[in-house]
Structure formats: C-alpha cells, structure tokens
Simulated assay, not measured.
Amino acid sequence: SGSSTNLVLAINLARLYGTTNYTKYRYRIRFCWWAAEEIGLVGAIHHVQQAQNSSTLSENKLSNYLINLNYDMLGSPNYFFGIYNGSSAKPGTPLQALNGSIRISEVFRDWFNLQNLPWDYTDFSGRNADETKSVEQRDRYESKLGEGHGGLAGAKVDPCYHLDCDTIKNIDKFGYFKMSQAAAYMLEYLGRKNDLVNYLYPNGRSSQIQLSDDYFPNSDYFRES
C-alpha cells in the first residue's frame, strides 16, 4: 500500500506540474521503490552507496538529499495511524539530523490532530506490521472514528504480512486513504518551504554521512569490498 501511495503522489504531482496554475516546488522530488528489502535492504543500501560514490557534479550525490519520507504498510486491515517518532532514531545518528526528524513527526501529528483523527508514535524498528493493537488503541480509535471502527484488540495490525493472502483485498480503504492524504500534505508542506535546509538543519548538516554496520544485512554477500 505504501508503494501505491508513492505512485499516486508521483502521478498527481506530474499532472499538477503540467498545468499553468500550479507553482512548482523549489526542490526536486525523487520517488523511489526499493527492491529486495526482505533479504537485507539490498535495494535501498545500493541506492545510498551509489549516491555516496557519485561525482561532485552529479545531482544524485548523497549531499543533495535533504530528507527521506518512508511510506510503508499504510493500508493494513487492522491499521493504526502511525507516525515515525523522530526522537527514537538509533544511537549514533548525527545530532544534526534529529531536529529535522522531530519536526517531520510534529507536522504529521498536527495534521492528524487537525483532521480529528487518532494517531500513534512508532519507533524506527521497521516491524510495525507485526505489532498487535491494544485495547487502549481500539477504544481510543473508536472514540474518534465511531463504534466498530477501532479495529480488533489483541489482533495483529496485518495478519497477512508476508503471506499469500497479502493482496489488494487485504487493505482497509479508509485507513489507506487518510494515510495517503497525510503523505500528500507533507509533500506540499515541505515543497513550499522557502528554506528547507535551515528548517530541517538549523545547526548545520553532518559532514560524516555513512551507513553504520547495523544497517547492513548479516551476510557479507551484500557488502561492498
């Protein structure tokens, strides 16, 4: 569902750019779909390594990237509106990066509050589909969305995760639609910033950009020598 949201955003932004009454963003937007995630983030790591090794004149060089917005598992059948908690970044994350991560978390939080929607912070574990919805979550979501719309307490967020039943029928349309709206809002919000660099990095950017060992898969097969 995150991949389809990415595609929807890309198609609609291209359509808007093709009109005469829509002002283009000050920044380039790159939409990415990573391959071979489940065997060790292979596609994502390859992309970052290529960007690290790009020439200084290349638009693909890593220093040209200001922010990465990761949309994954947006329409799980027992969904919750999850926001990555910028304060839960792994130890060793450059301090300069934390401010921007926290600000992005706050923008999402404020959007859900304005929409009178429930939300939950989630850490950067990448295992949200394995989470189980609590009674407290179910009751809180029902209080906002109405009786019967809080999901199933004690059940996994996505019981079909990595199974054959994980098809287009395994999506909650309401949850998916609202998460896609939030993603579109964030794109527009950031795209209209006059000075996105200082907004995200008021204390400057880290000059040491590298992947720590725990971002690599265990097998040395996927490492570059």
Rank of each mutant, 00 (worst) to 15 (best):
Q208N: 12
E142G: 01
N53H: 10
L200K: 11
A184C: 04
L152F: 12
S88N: 02
G92V: 04
E142R: 04
P94R: 12
N60P: 05
R205H: 04
P94F: 07
R15V: 10
L196W: 13
K144A: 12
I168P: 00
L57C: 01
Y22G: 08
T132C: 04
G43Q: 02
S212A: 09
E59D: 05
R138V: 06
I168A: 08
L163G: 04
S134E: 05
Q49K: 10
K144M: 13
L62Y: 05
Q115C: 06
K193H: 10
G151K: 02
I45L: 10
Y25C: 11
R15C: 07
S105W: 04
I102D: 00
N12G: 05
N64A: 03
R103K: 15
S105A: 08
G100E: 08
N12H: 10
F80L: 14
V8E: 05
D195L: 11
E38Y: 14
Y199C: 11
S225V: 02
S58T: 06
K173R: 10
I29W: 14
Q52G: 01
W34P: 05
Q181P: 07
S125C: 15
C32A: 15
D164I: 09
G150V: 01
N99D: 11
L152K: 15
D139N: 13
L98D: 02
K173I: 06
Y185C: 04
N70H: 11
D213A: 07
A184V: 08
I67G: 04
I168V: 10
N12Q: 07
Y79I: 14
F31C: 13
F112A: 14
T23K: 14
C32S: 08
Q52N: 02
T167D: 08
E224D: 13
E38G: 13
W34D: 13
S105Q: 01
K133E: 01
N70I: 12
I104V: 15
P94G: 04
G146E: 03
F174R: 11
N78D: 11
L7P: 00
D214R: 12
Y121P: 02
Y141C: 04
L69K: 03
L152N: 13
W111Q: 10
A184F: 15
G191W: 11
T93A: 08
E224T: 00
E136N: 14
S55T: 15
Q210M: 09
A51G: 09
S58M: 03
T167F: 10
G100K: 14
E188T: 15
F112H: 13
H149V: 05
W119C: 04
R103N: 13
A155W: 03
V48R: 01
T23F: 12
Y65Q: 09
Q208T: 15
G43M: 05
K90W: 05
L66N: 12
Y215V: 04
I171C: 00
S1E: 02
L62W: 02
G191T: 06
A44D: 00
Y84L: 15
S105G: 09
L16D: 14
S125L: 13
F222T: 00
L9V: 02
N6K: 09
H162Y: 09
R223L: 00
Q49G: 00
T23N: 14
A183W: 03
Y65L: 13
S4F: 09
T167H: 01
I104A: 06
V8N: 03
D220T: 10
G40Q: 06
T132G: 08
E59W: 09
L16I: 03
S219A: 04
I102R: 12
A184N: 11
D130V: 13
E224L: 00
S219P: 02
